[in-house]
């Protein structure tokens, strides 16, 4: 699929398969095009070029069948705050075609799953952020969709609610639902996903399982450092240091991909010392998706 907004090429020739029953993550920084892809798969946007099949239904030719097969959990909490939790679920259930006893039963089940049975009559506007987030998830589960699409559901929430959502995703997947998950948190993609597509600037730049992706950076070690001066004072010097493959700097932290951290680290200390710079912290990490992104783009994932 391609999607242009005027001169802005938001999605450029993206092509991927998601197998039934797997968790598939789109990982990339903000602006990479993840949400645009989700919007197209949810039939909110039409691709400029191309098409996608969801459960065999074309998003262009049969959008109603696609919408009936998916449950979308938007990045923003999208609820009617002046209605109660139960009234929200009732309404959204009707939008998914549920009626009568089937609707009542399903609403009861979902209230139990999201842990809001006790607060079902409470006005949503008075709920905590975590409760709203859970209800936001519950709405997408009402019609027992084949595919759950989650667009950065953990942005801006507390660690406990985040943990709760990640556990929910795994549980839904264990119940047989296929999950398409977007995130810019490397740890979430790593923890949840069977397959991951790394995106940057509207393109998929790498695609595979976690292990397959990590192999891209080979045996390189990743070192995160902080120094007592501006990064510019050591950046060029370290880029030229033997055994260093890549250096990036952000918010006072430097990230390096190196052959062997045991050999390269003393050279970095020596080089810094010669430049009058002191290294204040060092962290050596195993190769991970962050390193893959750095290796492929020259930028950190959080940039």
């Amino acid at each position: 699929m391609h999607k242009n907004f005027g001169d802005v090429y938001a999605v450029q020739g993206v092509n991927f398969d998601v197998q039934a029953g797997e968790i598939f993550s789109l990982l990339g920084p903000n602006g990479a095009g993840k949400s645009t892809i989700i919007s197209m798969l949810a039939c909110l946007l039409e691709p400029t070029q191309g098409d996608a099949l969801v459960m065999g239904h074309s998003i262009l030719r049969d959008p109603m069948a696609v919408k009936a097969a998916i449950g979308v959990i938007p990045q923003d909490i999208a609820l009617y705050e002046d209605l109660s939790a139960r009234e929200n679920l009732n309404f959204w259930g009707k939008m998914y075609g549920l009626r009568g006893a089937a609707l009542r039963q399903r609403v009861d089940e979902v209230l139990g799953v999201i842990g809001l049975a006790e607060r079902q009559k409470g006005r949503v506007g008075k709920f905590s952020g975590g409760m709203k987030r859970r209800l936001n998830v519950g709405i997408a589960l009402l019609h027992k969709p084949h595919v759950i699409i989650m667009d950065e559901p953990t942005v801006g929430i507390d660690p406990q609610s985040r943990r709760n959502i990640l556990d929910n995703v795994k549980e839904l997947n264990q119940q047989g639902m296929t999950v398409l998950y977007t995130t810019h948190y490397m740890e979430e993609a790593q923890e949840l996903s069977d397959n991951i597509a790394i995106m940057d600037q509207g393109k998929i730049i790498a695609h595979g399982t976690h292990d397959e992706l990590v192999k891209i950076v080979g045996e390189l070690d990743r070192i995160d450092l902080t120094i007592n001066a501006e990064a510019g004072r050591v950046l060029e010097r370290w880029q030229a240091t033997e055994g260093v493959h890549q250096v990036s700097a952000e918010n006072g932290q430097l990230t390096l991909l190196v052959d062997d951290s045991n050999v390269v680290l003393p050279r970095l200390f020596e080089s810094a010392s010669r430049g009058g710079v002191r290294i204040t912290s060092v962290e050596i990490q195993e190769p991970n998706l962050e390193a893959v992104f750095l290796h492929l783009t020259g930028r950190a994932l959080r940039d």
């Binding site: 949810a42 909110l44 938007p74 999208a78 009617y80 939008m95 709405i139």
Partner: peptide
């Protein structure tokens, strides 16, 4: 309010035209 709360957009992800 429906547009601002994004519920209008969410509606369009359900089988409604």
């Amino acid at each position: 309010l429906e547009r601002r709360s994004r519920t209008l957009q969410r509606l369009l992800t359900t089988p409604i035209t």
